[in-house]
Design a protein around this nucleic acid. Structure first.
Length: 619
RNA sequence: GCGCCCAUAGCUCAGGUGGAUAGAGCAACGGCCUUCUAAGCCGUAGGUCGCAGGUUCGAGUCCUGCUGGGCGCACCA
C-alpha cells in the first residue's frame, strides 16, 4: 500500500551555486529540444569525469525517428554547438564536455564564494524530524546511534536546503516499561539502595566507568525481565504500577520524574559528544498524557473506535488493506504508544503546521507506522502524504539479536571509546608530535563510527563487529578527514592567508547546518588545473549538490558519504600527481592549485558537518 | 499461515526515474616515502548480479513464481 508521500520538489539552488556548468547543461537541453521536437530530454551524469559533465542517451529518440542511436548521436554532436564545451558522440551517447578552464572556473566560483555550495534559499516548507527517541532508564546502545545520526543528518540536510526545521525527540518516558521500573525498584532497591548510589549486592560488579544511578536502573530493568520469564505474574505487577502512574499516584509520579531526570542528564552527555541537538526535549511520550482523552474522544466521534477483546479499544483498518487492528487503549484502560503517536501527530499539525514529518524509527515498526498513517488519513485528509517512516535495519551481533532486556548489548559509549583509543594508538605511531591529540582522536574516532553507519543503505541490517565499525582505512570517515587535514597542511605551508580561507567563520554546533566562509577571490588564471587529476577532482566536486539533494529525497546520508569519498579519493590523485608548493611551479600554477585546495577543503568540511562529523585541520 | 524487507567479487557493500565495458573498500599478490602527512598512491587477480520464467531495442534495476535469510502479525515501544 502506498500512501504517496509528498517528496520535496526540485528547487532552485541559491544564486552562488547556479554555476556555469548548469547553464551549459541548460544550453544543451535547449539545443536538443530544438533538434528533437517532442522528445523527452533527460540528461544523465556520466560515471566518470573523463566521459564528460553531462550525457544524453539517444536510444529513445533514435527509436522514435527510426534511426540508429549511434548515428543519431553522431549527427547531433556534429550539428549542435555549445559555447565553452565540446560535444562528443560516444556510441549511442552524446557527451557534453566542458573545456578544462571553464570547468575549473565554474567550480572555483561556486566554492570560493560565501554562498554555501549546494545549499538552497528558504522554501517556506516546514519539516519535522523525529529521531533518537531513547527509552528512559536504558543506556544508549550501538543501536541507538542509527536513529540519532540518520535523523541528525536528515535535519541538517533539510535545513541546508532551505526548510524550516523542528527536531523532535519522542523520548520513551511513558508506558508499561515504567511499570516495570517502578515494580523493580520497589522490589530490590527501595529498602537498601533507595538513591541508587551503591552497587547492588546481587548484581555483577559494574566497571568503574559505568558506575551511575542510570546503570543501576538499567540493572533493575534487566533483572525484572529475567525473573519475569520464570514468574509471568510479575507482568501484572508492572502493569499495575503503570496504571497507578497514569492515575496520578504521587509516589509513582515522584519516582517517574526522578528516573527521567537521571536518564536525561546521561542522554545529554551523549548528545553533546555526538554534536546532536533537538529543538525540545519536552515533547516525549509523557508530554501527551493530557492529550490522550481528547484524542480518544476524537477517534470515537470520527466513528473509528471499536471495542476489542476484554474491553480494549481498537481501530479496524481492514478496509485499507491492513488486517491487524490498531490497539489504542488496553483492556485495563491504560494508554499505549499508538494513542500517544496519534496525539503527537495531531499536536504537531496544530503546533507546527508541517509539510513533512519524518519518523526515523527502526524497520521492526513498519506495521505500526502504516497503521498510524492510515488512521491519521482517516481522521483528517490533511495528513495525507505528509508523514513518512524512514525505517532502518537493526544492528545484530554475530551471535544474534541484541536485547536490552537480556543484557547482551553493545553500549554506544564503549564503541566510541574503543574507536578513540584505536585512533590514539595510530596517532602515537604516525604523528606523535601532534598537538591536542585527545581532541583530534575524539573527532576521528567519532568520524569512523558515524561515517560507517551512514555509508550503506539504511534499511539493511548490520552485523556488528568491532573491526568493521571502527575501521580507519579504506572507505571510512578518517579517510575523508585525512584528505581534509592534508589540504589544511598544504595551505598552512603556503603561508599568507591561505589557511584562513578554508577556516569556518562561525561556530559549528548543532544550531546551524551551514559552514560559513569568507568570500575568497578567484585565481588570476586556471593554468595548473588542466591536468586530468585536477579535472577529475573538479568533476567530483560538481557532484556534491546533487548528492545533498539525494540525501533529502532518499532520507539517508549514504549518497553524501559516498560523494565525499569520491571527492577525497580524487583529491588524493590530484595531490599525488600535481605538486602544489613545488619550487619550480610558476606563481599562477601555485595559486590556482591552492585555490582548488581551498575549494576542496570547504566541500569536505561542509559535507562532513552535515553528517555530524568534525574535520580536524591536522591529524 | 499471512504481510513487509533483503540476496551483486572470498568478506562487507555501491550501483536515482530501466541505458555506456556491473564499481568501491577489506583480505591476497606486486610496486611507490631525499618534493606538500604512506591513515596515502599505482598495479594484478577476483562476477552465471540467489534460481526460473516474462515485459523491453535494452533488465543487477520492472513483473510473476521459487529458494534462502531477517522482521512483523492488538493489551511492549
Amino acid at each position: 500500500m502506498s500512501l504517496g508521500f509528498l517528496h520535496p520538489s526540485p528547487r532552485p539552488l541559491a544564486s552562488g551555486t547556479r554555476i556555469v556548468m548548469e547553464r551549459l547543461k541548460e544550453d544543451l537541453r535547449k539545443a536538443l529540444a530544438l533538434a528533437l521536437p517532442g522528445q523527452d530530454i533527460a540528461l544523465e551524469r556520466p560515471r566518470s569525469g573523463d566521459m564528460g559533465d553531462a550525457a544524453f542517451p539517444c536510444f529513445r529518440a533514435a527509436k522514435a525517428m527510426g534511426k540508429n542511436p549511434a548515428q543519431l548521436a553522431q549527427e547531433l554532436a556534429s550539428t549542435i554547438r555549445i559555447e565553452g564545451a565540446e560535444l562528443v558522440a560516444a556510441g549511442p551517447y552524446i557527451n557534453l564536455k566542458l573545456h578544462p578552464e571553464i570547468r575549473a572556473k565554474a567550480m572555483l566560483e561556486a566554492l570560493l564564494g560565501s554562498t554555501p555550495y549546494g545549499s538552497a534559499s528558504a522554501t517556506g516548507e516546514t519539516v519535522i524530524v523525529e529521531y533518537s527517541s531513547p527509552n528512559i532508564a536504558k543506556l544508549f546502545t550501538i543501536g541507538h546511534l542509527r536513529s540519532t545520526m540518520i535523523g541528525h543528518a536528515l535535519a541538517q540536510v533539510n535545513r541546508y536546503l532551505g526548510c524550516k526545521l523542528w527536531r523532535l525527540n519522542h523520548l520513551g518516558d511513558w508506558g508499561t516499561q515504567f511499570g516495570t521500573l517502578l515494580a523493580a525498584y520497589k522490589r530490590w532497591a527501595e529498602a537498601d539502595n533507595p538513591k541508587l548510589d551503591q552497587d547492588f549486592s546481587w548484581a555483577d560488579e559494574i566497571p568503574e566507568k559505568r558506575r551511575s544511578p542510570l546503570f543501576r536502573l538499567f540493572q533493575l530493568y534487566v533483572r525484572f525481565h529475567q525473573e519475569e520469564e520464570q514468574s509471568p505474574e510479575m507482568r501484572d505487577e508492572a502493569r499495575l504500577w503503570f496504571k497507578r502512574l497514569e492515575e496520578g499516584d504521587p509516589e509513582a509520579r515522584r519516582l517517574w520524574k526522578w528516573f527521567r531526570d537521571i536518564s536525561l542528564a546521561e542522554f545529554q552527555r551523549i548528545y553533546d559528544r555526538l554534536g546532536v541537538g533537538f529543538d525540545t526535549l519536552e515533547q516525549g511520550e509523557a508530554f501527551y498524557e493530557d492529550h490522550l482523552k481528547p484524542t480518544l474522544a476524537r477517534l470515537a466521534s470520527s466513528g473509528l473506535l471499536q471495542d476489542g477483546d476484554a474491553g480494549a479499544k481498537i481501530i479496524d483498518l481492514s478496509d485499507v488493506g491492513i488486517q491487524t487492528p490498531y490497539l489504542v487503549q488496553k483492556a485495563d484502560g491504560t494508554s499505549i504508544y499508538a494513542t500517544r503517536d496519534i496525539a503527537a501527530a495531531l499536536f504537531r499539525q496544530k503546533e507546527y503546521d508541517f509539510n513533512r514529518c519524518l519518523y526515523v524509527v527502526g524497520a521492526d515498526q513498519v506495521l505500526h507506522f502504516q497503521q498510524l498513517f492510515a488512521v491519521m488519513n482517516k481522521l483528517d485528509p490533511w495528513f495525507k502524504g505528509r508523514m513518512l517512516h524512514t525505517p532502518f535495519g537493526m544492528i545484530k551481533l554475530p551471535e544474534g539479536k541484541m536485547s536490552t532486556r537480556k543484557g547482551n548489548v553493545i553500549f554506544l559509549e564503549d564503541v566510541l571509546d574503543e574507536a578513540v583509543q584505536r585512533v590514539l594508538a595510530i596517532i602515537e605511531e604516525k604523528n606523535p608530535e601532534l598537538p591536542d591529540k585527545a581532541a583530534v582522536a575524539e573527532m576521528l574516532g567519532m568520524g569512523a563510527v558515524v561515517f560507517f553507519d551512514a555509508l550503506n543503505d539504511r534499511v539493511k541490517s548490520i552485523t556488528f563487529t568491532w573491526d568493521r565499525v571502527i575501521a580507519l582505512d579504506g572507505d571510512t570517515g578518517p579517510y575523508v578527514q585525512y584528505a581534509h587535514a592534508r589540504i589544511c597542511s598544504v595551505l598552512r605551508k603556503a603561508g599568507g592567508d591561505w589557511a584562513a580561507k578554508a577556516r569556518p567563520q562561525n561556530v559549528l554546533d548543532s544550531e546551524t547546518s551551514i559552514v560559513e566562509y569568507k568570500d575568497a577571490s578567484l585565481p588570476a588564471s586556471m593554468t595548473g588545473l588542466e591536468h586530468p587529476s585536477a579535472q577529475a577532482l573538479l568533476f567530483e566536486l560538481s557532484g556534491l549538490p546533487e548528492a545533498i539533494c539525494t540525501v533529502q529525497r532518499e532520507n539517508m546520508a549514504t549518497a553524501l558519504a559516498r560523494q565525499l569519498l569520491a571527492i577525497a579519493k580524487s583529491f588524493s590523485g590530484f595531490y599525488t600527481n600535481c605538486p602544489i608548493l613545488h619550487a619550480d611551479n610558476p606563481p599562477e600554477v601555485r595559486e590556482s592549485r591552492l585555490a582548488l585546495c581551498v575549494a576542496t577543503a570547504r566541500a569536505l568540511r561542509q559535507g562532513l558537518f552535515l553528517m555530524g562529523i568534525k574535520a580536524p585541520e591536522e591529524m
